[in-house]
Amino acid sequence: MDEYFIRTEHLCCNYRDENGREAPALIDINLKIKKGEYIAVIGRNGSGKSTLAKLLNMILLPASGKIYIDGKDMTSGNLSDDEILDIRRRVGMVFQNPDNQIVATIVEEDIAFGPENLGIPTPEIRRRVDYALETVGMRGYEKHEPHRLSGGQKQRIAIAGVLAMQPECIILDEATAMLDPRGRAEVINTIELLNRERKITVIMITHHMNEAVRADRVIVLSDGRLLRDYPPRQLFSEPDFLRRQGLGVPQSVELIDELRRQGIALEGEPVTPEECAGAIMKYLKQKKAHDG
């Protein structure tokens, strides 16, 4: 078996525009993602992030290039329907608008939708629904109507719907974009829990640098090309590149930059808010000890 869960080689994808011409959406993408990794994908609007996501679970087919999922060639062209369903089960997707991905009028029915499609026996579906609700912290909402829930709760239901299929990888396509800060935190915490404790591979497409900073690796797409594939620390150490790409830097990185400019010498390369807080604390303690 392959050491990488997802591997792409020279992946290209085209769309037909209004004039019937082929316009490239992704050009020569080479990616390697290990099982259990937490990847963030960033890039401005139209850079091809959603296209990449849809290629990875065979909603779209590439124009050329190869995709291997768990060592298996997805682009050989002779996959059976069952094999395609199996890929969609293993690579789940959560989309931006919670209202447009909830199928049923009752929470538990919606979570059961995936397993039902897979033909799982009824008692096992019940177990999975309970387990998925437990995992996203929504126990007790089984019989609720999704349209009465908050945005963050709806997205957690959508995640539970994917979880009930027992995926190995979850792709979130700007799943926090329509949420308020609290809903966003609910979703991020749920996802990090899944990544940490269930070893589920996470691919997080986002416009929020504060979310990207928490990933193991950040991938930057621009006009269909893969420009960077770095750990956050390395990526955010070139803020000028990011600004050129129309992307910001996380507030935490910005803060550290500003403090350094003011002549405050902080140790290490902190990027996440926690690390920054730690570095500032350490600085303050040292200063106090020094002064006092």
């Binding site: 909603i59 969609r88 989309f95 991905q101 199928v103 039902e116 033909g119």
Partner: peptide, 21 residues
């Protein structure tokens, strides 16, 4: 969008479908 989301959740018509309730 809903159609894509349903496809992502392995919807492929009524054939071989089981039910929760």
């Amino acid at each position: 969008e809903l159609a894509t989301a349903m496809e992502c959740r392995c919807y492929h018509g009524g054939e071989g479908r089981t039910r929760l309730n």
